Amino acid sequence: MDFKEYLNLLTETEKKHFPKELFFAGDQSLLFEKRRISVVGSRKATTNGLRRASVISKALVDNDIIVVSGLASGIDTMAHKTAIEYGGQTISVLGTPLDKAYPKENASLLEVIKDKHLAISQFSIGYPVQPKNFPIRNRTMALISDATIIIEATENSGTRHQGWEALRLGREVYILENVANDPSIKWAKEMLEYGAQVLTRENISSILESIPYLTAKFDYAF
């Protein structure tokens, strides 16, 4: 399949948001095997938030699902580390070039992911690290994922960008009930009105079994 044939498989919305160029380090087969789910949330995560991220990420591994996240502090870091700890696979979608970790404390984690898993960036080596990079990478993370799970967030959290991008792309969005039930987080209620679902202890097993492989058409694209 050449790139022109590949683009013909995308919906108009996917074509609009697909990066002009992607850079990879690691096992590119992770882009076309198994289902992939993004686990995202606050950089300044609470103890409960980190615990929930670990529980959810382990559940994904147990269901043979690849854990996708953004290498940020807090929830992202826990998602990646949990997937690795329990023998799963993980993809990091960076808001930096592949040779830079943000935060710097995750440099060793990024090297592990590049060596044993997969890191993706749409920013070439030497591209400046700017705040606008991160919402852009959230769009790409949503695009390569079959679903997004929001673990913990505030009203102004950048996590909301990921949720809205996923919904625009026709992907499933799941919001943990602690976020969905927080009256101070207005965007969570709005996302539920647009088709997001609440994820609970009671429904997680059935949801993980039923999430469709929406990104199957990306097989062998790269």
Rank of each mutant, 00 (worst) to 15 (best):
H161L: 03
V112I: 14
T96H: 02
S184Q: 14
K189P: 04
L143H: 07
A147N: 06
T96E: 00
S108C: 06
G170Q: 11
D146F: 03
I84A: 03
M191T: 02
M78P: 00
A72D: 04
N178D: 15
I144T: 02
G163W: 05
W187P: 01
Y86S: 02
E111I: 02
A119K: 01
R168F: 09
V68Q: 05
S54V: 03
S108R: 14
A72M: 11
G158I: 02
V68T: 13
S69L: 09
Y102M: 11
Q89S: 13
A59Q: 11
D99K: 03
D182T: 09
T159D: 08
A147Q: 06
E111P: 02
R139W: 00
Q162S: 15
H161D: 06
A53F: 11
S124R: 10
R168T: 13
G88H: 00
V129T: 13
A83F: 02
Y102C: 09
L109Q: 05
E177T: 11
S54G: 11
D182W: 12
N156K: 15
V61Q: 02
L118T: 01
S108N: 13
S57M: 07
Q162I: 09
L71W: 07
L110R: 08
Q130E: 13
A72K: 02
D146L: 06
E105I: 09
T77I: 04
L143M: 15
P183W: 13
F123N: 04
V173F: 12
A72L: 07
P128T: 08
S57D: 05
I91V: 09
K81I: 10
A72T: 03
K116V: 00
L109N: 07
